[in-house]
């Protein structure tokens, strides 16, 4: 199990480095004159050159890349070109918002996928057909559209939940819960549709397995059969789907945050990339990938716990 974990951690770190490098290259492919953008259109050539030197843009790309990577390894992601604030501070301030909706969305998604998927597999009949239909609809509704509809109904029309804004957990639990309910649901629905389908499919497959019949022949109760043996064997493939879905969740956060006026790192990646604030974009992307790597690592641990064969 340990070597399995170390391997996963290693590949996660490699992933972060490679993606950060890729982003660096992408952002430096542009001929955009960032220094002029920052200095303003009316600035003189000298002012632009000075700004350029201040930001280190006159250095060769390779030098800048090595500098950036070097300090990033030490936890320093640089400072924003526009505000001059350290990137880590900016991200740190916005992270709780995004983490709240992502993790709550993931939790809600997991719970509902299992319930719905198992029900569809075991009950069959109309339950199954209803779930299939929901899965199609869940697949066909992009999360930002769900967010818009939820906002229009529950925030604007019924006014049960706030339409915009985030309340910190430390401030008020109910306020926090209310502020993230709609965004978390908007994010979770797509993941539920996909994961519940997988739970259903692998439950049906597992229930056909020889060993399930043999367990039945031992007179085991239906509950043990279903929830101890069948669900445990059906879980690993569903977990794989869920970890792919989580990546989608992170992407969905970019748009959903905008709909609900949440200033998290989703909004940040959008605003910083459109302004060309390189250090900020790179920082946000690194943090996003880090979140994905960590959550996937958790899922890998769960996977290893569920499936004894991968533990070696």
């Amino acid at each position: 199990m340990l070597s399995f974990l170390l391997r996963r951690i290693g590949s996660g770190l490699a992933l972060i480095v490679v993606i950060a490098s890729l982003m660096f290259v992408l952002m430096n492919m542009t001929g955009q004159n960032v220094a002029r953008n920052i200095a303003g259109q009316t600035a003189s050539e000298e002012q632009v050159a000075a700004k350029s030197a201040e930001l280190g843009l006159d250095q060769p790309v390779v030098t800048r890349y090595l500098d950036w990577i070097g300090s990033a390894i030490q936890g320093d992601l640089g400072s924003s070109w526009f505000t001059g604030q350290p990137v880590t501070d900016t991200i740190g301030a916005k992270l709780p918002v995004t983490l709240s909706i992502l993790l709550v969305g993931l939790l809600v998604g997991t719970i509902f996928s299992v319930i719905i998927g198992v029900a569809a597999a075991v009950k069959g009949g109309w339950v199954d057909r209803a779930v299939q239909l929901l899965a199609i609809i869940g697949f066909a509704l992009p999360s930002f559209l769900i967010a818009l509809v939820l906002a229009a109904i529950f925030a604007v029309k019924l006014q049960i939940f706030p339409a915009v804004g985030y309340v910190e957990l430390a401030e008020s639990f109910s306020g926090w819960a209310k502020s993230i309910t709609l965004p978390a649901i908007a994010l979770a629905i797509g993941a539920i549709a996909a994961t519940a389908q997988q739970v259903r499919g692998s439950m049906i497959d597992v229930l056909k397995m020889d060993y399930v019949r043999t367990l039945r022949s031992r007179g085991l109760s239906a509950r043990s059969l279903l929830f101890r043996h069948a669900l445990r064997n059906a879980a690993p493939p569903a977990l794989t789907v869920l970890s792919l879905q989580f990546i989608g969740l992170v992407g969905g956060a970019v748009v959903v945050e905008k709909v609900f006026g949440l200033y998290g790192i989703g909004t940040l990646v959008f605003s910083s990339s459109s302004s060309g604030d390189q250090p900020l974009v790179l920082g946000v992307v690194v943090v996003m990938v880090l979140i994905i790597v960590l959550v996937n690592l958790l899922m890998d641990v769960a996977y290893g716990w569920l499936n004894p064969k991968v533990r070696v």
């Binding site: 970019v254 990646v269 974009v281 992307v285 790597v293």
Partner: peptide, 13 residues
Amino acid sequence: AIPAIVILLVVMT
């Protein structure tokens, strides 16, 4: 392993 929309945002700029 990366959200497509993030890459798209960066590439589009």
